[in-house]
Design a protein around this nucleic acid. Structure first.
Length: 102
DNA sequence: GCCATGGCTAGTA
DNA sequence: GCCATGGCTAGTA
């Protein structure tokens, strides 16, 4: 496992319940501000094995990024279950719910 | 080659 | 709506 990947996994694991981070934000915190898509890839392929709270990552506008219906719904349900308000369209209020690691 | 992005522009209203 | 970006997993040979 590469250092960047390990960083990303660590950062995402540390997002508290009821909070979200953006793909780009996670990439930046891991040291590569432009590697947002790589964060996507890591979540896509490794969230299962590592038990990552994948649902706590949204795009830069605060939207659920999954197009596929079942995944979208699942992420919405998980977030709402933690007290995060999600609109019908999958929008989360970043000003209110974004996590800023110290 | 993949990917669940991001940011900027053109073009409409 | 378009396209530059980036780090690498999964799976074959």
């Amino acid at each position: 496992m590469q250092p960047f990947t390990a960083q990303v996994i660590e950062i995402i694991s540390a997002i508290p319940a009821g909070k979200v981070m953006t793909y780009g934000q996670v990439a930046g915190a891991a040291g590569s501000p432009r590697a947002a898509r790589q964060v996507v890839r890591i979540l896509h392929s490794m969230s299962g094995k590592h038990g990552l709270p994948w649902h706590r990552v949204v795009n830069a506008r605060g939207e659920i990024a999954i197009r596929e219906e079942e995944g979208f719904f699942l992420q919405k349900m998980f977030l709402e279950g933690e007290g995060v308000e999600v609109t019908e369209d999958g929008l989360v209020n970043l000003a209110r719910y974004q996590h800023h690691p110290s």
